[in-house]
């Protein structure tokens, strides 16, 4: 399955509380993704919490957008990526 880097902007900042409700919101996203065969692998959030860089495994960019819409998440840009492991050559 292809892997995508999804960039998102949150003009008012993103915050997921580090408690049970945060867990619940994340799990809700995961469940929503499952229906389209999309897996949220990991996200990187900028210091000001206005931008995120999210790694997804998904069957197509359309599936990424479909789940984003269902989760009410914005999408700026989707790029297909591959892993480059710096220690591979050691």
């Amino acid at each position: 399955m292809p892997r995508y880097l999804v960039e998102r902007t949150f003009p008012e900042g993103l915050s997921i509380p580090m408690d049970a409700s945060g867990e619940k919101t994340c799990l809700a996203v995961v469940a929503n993704n499952g229906e389209d065969g999309v897996t949220w692998v990991q996200s990187y959030v900028t210091e000001d919490k206005r931008k995120t860089f999210c790694i997804y495994d998904a069957p197509s960019p359309e599936a990424v957008r479909r789940t984003a819409a269902r989760n009410k998440l914005p999408v700026d840009r989707i790029t297909q990526v591959r892993v480059l492991d710096p220690y591979f050559y050691r």
Binding site: F10, L14, S15, I16, T25, N32, K72, L73
Partner: peptide, 17 residues
């Protein structure tokens, strides 16, 4: 609350912060 968290999560979070 469950439904809001499931579907409209950002609105709730932004307001919370």
């Amino acid at each position: 609350v469950a439904k809001a968290q499931g579907t409209a999560l950002l609105e709730t979070q932004e307001a919370r912060t």
